[in-house]
Simulated scan of single mutants.
Amino acid sequence: MALGILLGLLTGLGHSLAYLASRWFTVDRGRPVSQLLVQGHVLMGAVCWVALPFLWPVGFAPTAEWWGQLSGLIGFFVLAQVCLLSSLRATDASRVAPLLGMKVAVLALLSVLMGMPLTGTQWTGVAMAVAAAWVLNDVGGRLAWKVTALVVGACLAYALADTFIKGTIEIAKDMTGDHSRFGIPIFTVAAVYGSLGVIALPLLGVWGSRKREAWRDTLPYAAIWLATMVALYATFASLGTVLGAILQSTRGLISILLGVMLAGMGWHHLEQKHGWAVQARRLGAAALMCLAVLLYVWGGR
Rank of each mutant, 00 (worst) to 15 (best):
residue 158 Y to K: 10
residue 65 E to R: 12
residue 287 A to Q: 08
residue 37 L to Q: 06
residue 289 M to W: 00
residue 116 M to N: 15
residue 102 M to S: 13
residue 226 L to Q: 00
residue 15 H to R: 14
residue 185 P to V: 13
residue 196 L to N: 03
residue 96 V to N: 03
residue 147 V to G: 00
residue 56 W to P: 10
residue 228 T to C: 09
residue 134 W to E: 15
residue 157 A to T: 04
residue 8 G to Q: 08
residue 223 A to P: 00
residue 232 L to W: 07
residue 224 I to Y: 04
residue 292 A to P: 00
residue 216 R to I: 10
residue 1 M to A: 10
residue 168 T to I: 03
residue 69 Q to M: 14
residue 1 M to W: 15
residue 85 L to C: 11
residue 211 K to V: 12
residue 153 G to M: 03
residue 154 A to D: 08
residue 294 L to R: 14
residue 63 T to R: 01
residue 167 G to T: 02
residue 206 V to S: 10
residue 133 A to V: 01
residue 33 V to M: 07
residue 234 A to T: 00
residue 91 T to I: 14
residue 136 L to F: 09
residue 146 K to E: 15
residue 72 G to F: 07
residue 169 I to H: 02
residue 297 V to T: 12
residue 104 V to W: 03
residue 272 Q to W: 15
residue 277 A to C: 13
residue 179 H to R: 13
residue 186 I to C: 08
residue 255 S to Q: 02
residue 227 A to M: 12
residue 274 H to P: 00
residue 107 L to C: 11
residue 289 M to T: 00
residue 140 G to I: 06
residue 83 C to A: 12
residue 23 R to W: 11
residue 267 W to K: 15
residue 201 L to E: 03
residue 106 V to P: 09
residue 271 E to R: 06
residue 172 A to V: 08
residue 31 R to M: 11
residue 110 L to H: 02
residue 83 C to R: 04
residue 249 S to R: 08
residue 149 A to H: 02
residue 117 P to E: 06
residue 144 A to I: 09
residue 236 F to P: 06
residue 72 G to E: 09
residue 135 V to H: 08
